[in-house]
Design a protein around this nucleic acid. Structure first.
Lengths: 352, 352
DNA sequence: GGCGCTAGTGTGACCGGTCACACCAGAGGT
DNA sequence: ACCTCTGGTGTGACCGGTCACACTAGCGCC
């Protein structure tokens, strides 16, 4: 009979079984429970024992098995991010923020892409998180995300990155958002201060009854004594921005356009160019997000920098707080910051 | 003494323990092993038993515990994606492809962002994947990814999305890539056919000794009997494209610029505008990737569509094949497709 | 000197699956 | 009638941790 040393197999087929807590215990001459105490930084271990065990752990390269740990105490130290099927900047930046914070806390991060059509896999993902004891972060900027958010049962540890809520959110709701209203108000005010008689708005689809971004724009206009024009409805992409741009370019009264995000703004820019309007001579354009590319649009886009990475970090902090049983009040994250570039300027004096 | 029914607690604090395989077994009047056989679609279960057990499973909403399963047979049904810290389109599209394929195979997807500075957490992530029995996909388009790739030991199930290799890759290397050389050759040939005397190239950083994209561009020129000019070196962002664009715009002999990706192309466009060169009248510009925004640049960008989603799917297929012990030959994925838009055209007849 | 207390350690069950193996009944062959 | 084979099922150990609890030794204290 032949026996192969699994630990030293060269062929690579036999996966060497890594050291377990009992191996460490045997070599260090202690019980497995003491090893467990050492790896969990339990207080009641004598320094001498701790050191001896630690040495064996290092020598063996022992690493506790996450599955076993999860099975035993239902604590997976993991977060699953639910996010809709998109390659948009804000989403990925948020994910990056979550991952960054999670890594610092040595949590692992899972990702599930949710598709608008079928919610069954969303439910599956949620259930999966539940029965592995994991936490959930839902990126719910859009309708698909909101639907997923609604599927999450009350009791499971969750946080959500959302659009600014229309009214004060339910106390204890684990929501994080960027202050859309202030951002929109500031951007609108900036455009008015340039001398524009009014500011037109191309809106993102809103998940709330009343978008705070739209509200901010409106309130800035009202405060200046201006009756807000009807906002145009776009979706998230440049194409719908282009369509809105074509429409607006035909109205000579339009001299300033605020767009729901930089992609829409890009579409508006392209439409204005196609319609031979000068930017910012004839029309000023501003966006939201400050994507990395926006500085290189033609002309460079004035926009509002939104800190999605901080938003992601905050989501993670919220969900871990809940995991620890702490109470977290919903709160906005970060301070939107207007970035002025070449796409906005004072309106040309009317010729008449 | 008070006892709370954990299963029906309304408060939400007590997490109801979900049904286990033994609960199902007891209710169905079979052994736990039979239940195991049912959930694993094992052949040797009589139809009657199978149906009875399945009914109980459905009624109880039983879902097998992933941790327990992983612990028992070392099979986590999970993939961890290692990806550098970026919000670039190609990366996220690749991730989307991986996730899509993984979801279809009911694998879970983890993500670890790798930072160029510290490789310790990369090692930690790899070890983690090893001792939970998970697989790895490394997105190694850039240097950071390549470094991570090198950290992965031979024996663990892995696939990598890479730049086209300079020479035939080692047999059995689990690499997937897009055919950069063909893509660059076709794009260059297209520009030459428009009548440009030569094509200048703004290169992405390459992870290989000899970038296939650069090689494709070069070979197209040589085939046309043209001595290739020195390519310009950029990084991945629009800023470096802008710098390259400024440089090239000062050379009146430059009439066509091929760029390593759409972001660089965007930078080049912005530089050309700043230098008052007409596009495509004075200079034609083309990119790579076909990002969603590229159609809305000024002018709309001619580019080559690269199917990153298919690349991601292929990475997943590769890694699962390896997980199953199959042999996979390294291979390119998808067919790059030139998308002609307004940023390229025939050169203006020389005035002289 | 006996008591309680506590710091430090060990024991065995348990989490929820899977695996190897034992077992049994009935079909089919001789 | 007996043996073998095979489809269908059950038993108990095991994966690698954690938990509750038992135990011991040394200390301070009356």
């Amino acid at each position: 009979m032949q026996r192969v040393d699994a630990g030293l197999s060269v062929s690579g087929t036999a996966r060497s079984r890594s050291a377990s807590i009992r191996d460490v215990a045997r070599i260090a001459g202690v019980s497995h429970q003491t090893v467990s105490r050492v790896i969990n930084r339990h207080a009641k271990v004598s320094p001498a024992t701790r050191e001896r065990v630690q040495k064996v752990i290092d020598e063996l390269g022992f690493r506790p098995n996450a599955s076993a740990r999860a099975l035993a105490n239902g604590d997976t130290q993991s977060v699953t991010v639910l996010m809709s099927d998109t390659t948009r900047y804000g989403y990925l930046a948020t994910l990056t923020g979550i991952e960054e914070a999670a890594r610092a806390a040595s949590f692992s991060v899972g990702i599930v892409v949710i598709e608008s059509g079928s919610s069954s896999h969303v439910r599956a993902a949620i259930e999966n998180a539940i029965d592995t004891g994991g936490a959930l972060v839902v990126v719910a900027f859009d309708k698909t995300g909101q639907l997923a958010l609604r599927e999450v049962p009350e009791r499971i540890p969750m946080a959500a990155a959302v659009e600014s809520p229309a009214s004060a959110p339910p106390a204890g709701a684990p929501w994080c958002w960027i202050d859309d209203e202030a951002a929109a108000r500031d951007a609108t005010r900036y455009l008015l201060e340039l001398g524009h008689p009014t500011v037109h708005y191309v809106a993102l689809p809103s998940t709330t009854r009343s978008s705070r971004r739209t509200a901010g724009w409106r309130s800035a206009l009202r405060r200046a004594g201006i009756d807000p024009p009807t906002p145009l409805q776009a979706d998230w992409g440049a194409l719908s921005g282009h369509e809105a741009g074509v429409f607006l370019s035909r109205d000579p009264g339009v001299s300033a356009i605020l767009c729901g995000n930089d992609e829409i703004a890009l579409g508006v820019l392209s439409a204005l160019h196609a319609e031979r309007r000068k930017i910012p001579g004839d029309v000023s354009v501003a966006g939201f997000d400050d994507e990395p590319q926006s500085a290189f649009y033609t002309p460079a886009l004035t926009t509002t920098k939104l800190d999605f990475v901080a938003l992601g970090r905050s989501c993670f902090a919220t969900v871990t707080a809940r995991l620890g049983g702490e109470h977290v009040e919903p709160h906005p994250v970060g301070t939107p910051e207007l970035v002025v570039r070449a796409s906005t300027g004072s309106p040309r004096r009317a010729r008449s």
